[in-house]
Nucleic acid binder design. Structure first.
Length: 667
RNA sequence: GCUGGUGUAGCUCAGUCGGCAGAGCGCGUCCUUGGUAAGGACGAGGUCUCGGGUUCAAAUCCCGACACCAGCUCCA
């Protein structure tokens, strides 16, 4: 009799030929009810899987509490969607792949008709029929040849291609098909598995729900194009995105989060708050308005202060430099399609896409001594990159932006300490903006790169050593480094759980070589310095966009374009209100007076919509007491307070760069 | 760059079958002088993205360009 070992360590005997489902039943009917799939000897399997052989077998019944179960639910929902699409559009639909992804699933289809967003309800309705019918997921193991014949005869060219690659063993993990659920693997006997749901058969490794009736809550979200296997030279398929959850409540919470993300879209808020704009006359080039400049300048003032404190000096290098310089740096070889070129007096020049060559020229401008290293040279450098038209996205992807760059020239043995110094600076800066959840990735040497193996090893070791010295968890991205250096990338997660790449630290031994940088050592010999490229905010413009979404437009006081609005109750109090506003401004606060002829309630509404943190209502009582009646945008009416006291309190809040209480709804 | 969608007042959007260009908000003027999210009246504001075509007649139909949106590819 087979024996299974459960996660709690207990063992039990099960009947020969028993399915996982019946084992679950044997453990308890509640568990059997809740069971979605199982992990048998480390493999995810269907509930219908038979526990074969005496074992002991490690068995874990997965219920809707587990993340694996959620992925299985979504993957199964993708199959149901495919079945529904086939019913709605007919048998000529060709199927690509349909995996579960981070927040849901998708399926790619090839069909002559256009699927529009308006068609999604029809598809969803068809899915509900399949769910109502509790259509089972039937697993079949067949020889690859037979599967190929089946797919061929039904015109499923993409599936045939997948089968061919499986047979050839060339379907490597990490390909665009990286979602494990989507990737069928040949069994030990060269067999592949098929899953049937309703009248849809898919090549699929599984596992799946026992039947479609186990899908409690789903939503189709949008349609978009997508290359077959992520290859831009292959056909473009139509992809439908959707999501599914085990409870209606969880689905609703997720949809609310999507809604909240739309509400916080920095493009929307940027327009509403008059922070910046874009124009046809310069696609991808942001126009910063006065209110946006206030935020930007506050960020930069803070940035300069902490850099000064961390031992940096600041430089500025030209935007246009000779083409020859970029040939020397290797940028021309590796990056010219994305660079802008121009001509000055017959000679060829490039608009800088990076600041480093300029920094190198400053280093080379005079002899350097080990006594003056490390040299930490910061530059708020304006760079231009020709991003392809389809990738532009508000402030988050632009063609011109300001990097908060720095180049640290140091002795090779100082590298790790310098990297640690940058890591500390990153912590300090991100913490100030309220980014708590920061993830770190280490990218190693890519295929196209300059420099020697030894350089790359040394450089990568310095980065890894610093990460390990700090005890930071990090993910490694093999071959994802820059052409001249391995790098640490920082990803910050905002309050909606979305991740943004901001900071980067790159240890570069190749550029100093190319540009023949030297310093005089204590031995009076020439030596080669090491170089660190780093940015913390990344692009200032992009960081502003991220901040807008993170705060939902409700900036902390120190960043708010207008910090306080003085709202007289009637124009009889305009004179006092004006003097109060002047007092605030004298104390360095950004204050405005609303002397329109509206009622206070209308003034409050307007100030609230403009997301002004403090509203100061003044009327007869306040004039008499030299006070203001404070309304905090987040906390509401706080009552009267002497004007001086408010000024002191607000100035203190600005000095401390205090974060505002989260005003977010729906979180 | 690719696939699909969208482009009308400062903003959000309506505009039927091809027949005089619309609303709300905002803006301006006047009235109103009020206590914590919208007081009232009047008014101004348009190259219907741009270029071509069809038509007696185009915001509307056709072709092309551009920009934006969703996604894919890319992001030193």
């Amino acid at each position: 009799m087979p024996t299974v070992r459960l996660p709690d360590g207990s063992a039990m005997e099960v009947a020969a030929g028993a399915s996982v489902a019946s084992v679950a039943q044997q453990i308890g009917s509640r568990l059997a009810q809740a069971a979605v799939a199982a992990r048998l000897n480390g493999q995810l399997v269907d509930l219908s899987t038979v526990v074969a052989g005496d074992g002991p077998h490690d068995l874990e019944i997965l219920t809707d509490k587990s993340d694996d179960a959620l992925r299985i639910l979504r993957h199964s929902t993708a199959h149901v969607m495919a079945a529904a699409v086939r019913r709605v559009y007919g048998n000529h639909v060709k199927f690509g792949i349909g995996p579960a992804i981070e927040d849901g699933f998708y399926y790619d289809f090839d069909l002559p008709e256009r699927i529009a967003d308006e068609d999604l309800p029809r598809i969803e309705a068809e899915m509900q029929k399949i769910i109502l019918a509790a259509a089972p997921f039937v697993r079949e193991e067949v020889p690859a040849q037979e599967a190929a014949r089946l797919m061929q005869s039904s015109g499923q060219d993409y599936k045939v291609e997948l089968l061919r690659d499986i047979a050839a063993g060339s379907l490597a993990p990490g390909e665009q098909l990286s979602q494990a659920e989507a990737k069928p693997v040949p069994g030990p006997s060269g067999a592949v598995t098929l899953y049937r749901t309703a009248d849809f058969v898919d090549l699929c490794r599984g596992p799946h729900l026992p039947h479609a009736g186990r899908i409690p809550a789903l939503k189709l979200l949008n349609v978009a194009g997508s290359y077959w296997r992520g290859d831009s030279s292959r056909p473009m398929l139509q992809r439908i995105y959707g999501t599914a959850f085990f409870t209606k409540k969880a689905l609703d919470a997720h949809l609310a989060r999507l809604q909240e993300a739309r509400r916080r879209d920095h493009r929307r808020i940027g327009k509403d708050l008059d922070l910046f704009s874009f124009h046809d006359e310069g696609p991808g080039f942001a126009f910063m308005h006065p209110a946006g400049m206030v935020v930007l300048n506050e960020i930069l003032e803070f940035w300069r202060a902490v850099h000064l404190d961390a031992g940096y000096v600041e430089v500025r290098t030209p935007t246009i430099l000779s083409r020859e310089l970029w040939l020397r740096s290797g940028h021309w070889d590796n990056y010219r399609e994305a660079m802008y070129f121009t001509q000055i007096d017959e000679a060829s020049y490039a608009v800088k896409p990076m600041n480093c060559p300029g920094g190198l020229l400053i280093y080379l401008n005079k002899p350097r001594s080990y006594r003056n290293l490390p040299l930490r040279m910061a530059e708020l450098g304006l760079v231009h990159r020709h991003e392809k038209s389809g990738v532009l996205h508000g402030l988050l992807r632009v063609r011109q932006f300001t990097q908060d760059d720095a180049h640290i020239f140091c002795l090779p043995e100082q590298l790790q300490d310098e990297v640690l110094g940058v890591i500390n600076l990153v912590d300090r800066i991100y913490g100030t903006f309220g980014f708590q959840d920061v993830r770190v990735e280490l990218s190693t040497r890519p295929e196209h790169s300059i420099g020697t193996d030894e350089m790359w090893e040394h450089a990568t070791r310095a980065l890894r050593g610093a990460l390990e010295a700090r005890g930071l968890a990090y993910k490694v991205n093999e071959g994802e480094g820059a052409f001249y250096a391995p790098k640490i990338d920082y990803h910050v997660r905002d309050c909606l759980g979305r991740s943004w790449q901001c900071g980067t630290i790159q240890v570069d031994l190749a550029m100093p070589e190319r540009f023949n940088l030297t310093y005089a050592g204590a031995d009076n010999q020439e030596h080669r310095p090491a170089m660190i490229h780093r940015a913390i905010l990344g692009s200032i413009e992009r960081f502003l966009g991220i901040l807008i979404e993170h705060y939902g437009g409700d900036f902390p006081l120190w960043l708010a374009p207008v910090q306080a609005a003085v709202l007289p109750v009637s124009d009889r109090f305009n004179a006092y209100a004006a003097s109060a506003a002047a007092g605030l401004r004298q104390a360095g606060l950004r204050a405005e007076l609303d002397d329109s002829s509206d009622k206070v309630s209308a003034k409050i509404r307007r100030a609230t919509l403009r997301k002004i943190p403090y509203m100061l209502v003044v009327g007869e009582k306040e004039v008499a007491a030299r006070s203001v009646s404070v309304r905090d945008k987040a906390a509401g009416d706080l009552g009267a307070e002497p004007l001086d006291a408010f000024i002191r309190r607000a100035a203190q809040e600005v000095r401390e760069k205090r974060l505002r209480p989260k005003a977010a709804a729906a979180l």
